[in-house]
């Protein structure tokens, strides 16, 4: 009997039950094969971006570049440099807009999500309902109405037009609310008994346990903000972002295919860097999570 308990404990200390090495290897192989399919178009994009133009349209198409070159990237930057505004201005715009949107979105969405998930007050259900409706309501008329609102607020052709509309993302709030909802009520009650205010409970007790969801939100927010197409709400060159200008450099159809690929690669790099940084945090949390019901 004692031996049985001991083996059970031993198993438990091995973290998870019933892991056969063969199974794990099979999973790895399966994921690798599927991963190759997923990566293929992205790999091709990278290869095309370093192919000279004449190599893109040959038969049979090659899976690698015979004479790799950085011409496409040079062309892209050359086009971006031709504008009246110095290139550094676009870099600054992109960083400023992306960082502001990401930070504001994460802070505001976390606070609102905490309140909506864990507090009972008049209007809670109603607001929760509206968030889901906002997620599902996709109308192309909204953009016009949004434009009208921005015009009324004199925001067109300023940084505000790029930043403010993206701050309150119903998707981000929904994600955080779903995750914070899983925090045991007992933990919050205990903090209340200890005399902590809502604001402190949110930031010092709940949010430190929400790293996976928060990091995921950072990825979403950064990606969306980085890709904001500024062309429709700002018209002066000095407010345009990198991605907008890069897209302009690429827009000449298949003749510019190489440059278009370079642009794709270029705009993909910052989100991937953020993704790697954030995912590392997500995976580290697993090692020592501490919520107990």
């Amino acid at each position: 009997m004692a031996a049985a308990v001991n083996t059970a404990k031993l198993k438990a200390s091995n973290k998870q039950a019933g892991r056969k090495v063969g199974g794990t290897v099979a999973i790895f192989i399966f994921l690798s094969l599927l991963g190759l399919f997923m990566l293929f178009p992205i790999y091709l994009t990278v290869v095309m971006s370093i192919k000279p133009v004449e190599e893109i349209f040959i038969f049979p198409p090659k899976l690698y570049a015979m004479r790799p070159t950085l011409d496409n990237f040079k062309d892209m930057f050359a086009v971006m440099h031709q504008n009246r505004v110095p290139f550094s201005r676009y870099v600054f715009n992109s960083i400023f807009v992306t960082v502001t949107v990401t930070v504001a979105q994460c802070i505001f969405a976390s606070m609102a999500a905490f309140v909506l998930a864990k507090c009972r007050f008049p209007g809670n259900k109603f607001i929760n309902g509206i968030i889901v409706v906002a997620l599902l309501y996709q109308s192309n008329v909204i953009y016009i109405m949004q434009y009208i609102v921005m015009a009324k607020l004199h925001m067109i052709d300023t940084y505000w037009a790029l930043i403010l509309p993206s701050i309150a993302s119903p998707m981000g709030l929904f994600l955080m609310r779903q995750s914070i909802g899983q925090v045991p009520d007992a933990m919050i009650e205990a903090a209340k008994v200890d005399g902590a205010g809502l604001f402190r409970i949110c930031w010092q007790i709940v949010m430190p346990n929400q790293k996976p969801a928060l990091m995921t939100l950072i990825i979403f927010a950064f990606q969306a903000a980085w890709n904001i197409q500024s062309g429709t709400v700002v018209f002066q060159e000095q407010y345009k972002t990198l991605t907008t200008v890069a897209a302009q450099a690429a827009s000449a159809g298949l003749a510019r295919a190489g440059v278009a690929m370079a642009v794709s690669v270029f705009t993909l790099v910052p989100p991937i860097v953020i993704f790697m940084l954030a995912q590392r945090q997500v995976i580290e949390t697993m090692a020592h999570s501490g919520i107990k019901d």
Partner: peptide, 10 residues
């Protein structure tokens, strides 16, 4: 990664 990339051209 595919949902981050804009790869219609490819």
């Amino acid at each position: 990664a595919p949902s981050m990339a804009n790869v219609y051209t490819v």
